[in-house]
């Protein structure tokens, strides 16, 4: 029906699809000092950078879970990147990675962090650690892997120094999604790269004709896009795992 008065310029913000970036961050004692300092600094810097990633129709939200002797969410709900304030972390205690996996499984559901009626993009999950779990992480991971949100999510792990590569590969399901730094020297670069590229992939373009979306829970397309971006940023032959072997490891 035309011919009625209305204001064609008055509108609500266009409906947005939610993209939750989950960060599982190891804050055990070994992370204390420079490592946790780098994490704090780079996260404070990178958050403003991803405020406009994804354009108008993505609502990027962050949910940060730290694990040491126990687990703790930075905020009780995922919060929008527009208003998110990073609360600086400190490190102490054990490495309850398994506890973190179970807690993530708890919250990755429609009745918790991914509530309706919002439409969500498949989430992104980062795992950052510098050591070996002190609890039954593998058992917890088996349970987490049954979670359909987790299955469809893009999973990226960042390992620092001497870390449990097996569990990180089991977590991501693909060795190419495990980024590592021998000393932590390029930790900032890796966190920045992983955050920006995955928020772009999560909310944006997909390569055409790549197939790989054959099963409902598959994250294969996003994984491939992430690996492509990794190669584009760091080169084919230059795996970010090995480019800082000469760096000073003292003072941690």
């Amino acid at each position: 029906m035309t011919g009625e008065a209305f204001d064609p310029l008055e509108a609500e913000p266009i409906a947005r699809k939610r993209l939750v970036l989950f960060y599982l961050i190891d804050v055990s004692g070994s992370m204390d000092g420079q490592k946790i300092g780098v994490v704090n600094q780079v996260m404070e810097e990178v958050i403003p950078e991803i405020r406009n990633v994804g354009g108008a129709d993505s609502d990027i939200q962050l949910a940060v879970l730290t694990f040491s002797s126990g687990t703790s969410w930075m905020y009780p709900q995922p919060s929008s990147i527009e208003t998110f304030q990073w609360s600086r972390l400190s490190a102490d205690g054990m490495t309850s990675m398994g506890g973190a996996f179970l807690e993530l499984d708890n919250k990755m559901s429609r009745s918790a962090f991914l509530s309706a009626p919002h439409l969500s993009f498949a989430p992104v999950v980062f795992l950052l650690t510098d050591g070996y779990p002190t609890d039954d992480a593998l058992g917890a991971l088996e349970k987490l892997k049954l979670n359909r949100w987790f299955k469809s999510s893009l999973k990226v792990a960042l390992g620092i120094g001497d870390f449990d590569r097996d569990i990180l590969e089991a977590f991501t399901g693909n060795p190419e999604l495990v980024l590592s730094t021998a000393t932590g020297k390029n930790l900032a670069q890796l966190i920045r790269f992983a955050t920006i590229s995955s928020s772009t992939i999560g909310s944006r373009s997909m390569g055409y004709g790549s197939g790989g979306a054959d099963s409902e829970d598959s994250s294969a397309l996003k994984e491939k896009a992430f690996i492509d971006m990794k190669k584009d940023a760091f080169g084919d032959e230059q795996n970010p795992t090995v480019d800082d072997i000469d760096m000073d490891d003292s003072g941690w």
Binding site: K17, R110, L114, A116, P117, L119, S120, F121, A122, R148, W149, S152, M206, G212, A213, D214, S215, E216, D217, S218, S219, A220, L221, K222
Partner: peptide, 13 residues
């Protein structure tokens, strides 16, 4: 589309 909740690559396709 809302019913799918999770706009995975599969659902997007």
């Amino acid at each position: 589309v809302c019913k799918c909740c999770n706009l995975t690559d599969y659902n997007y396709r």
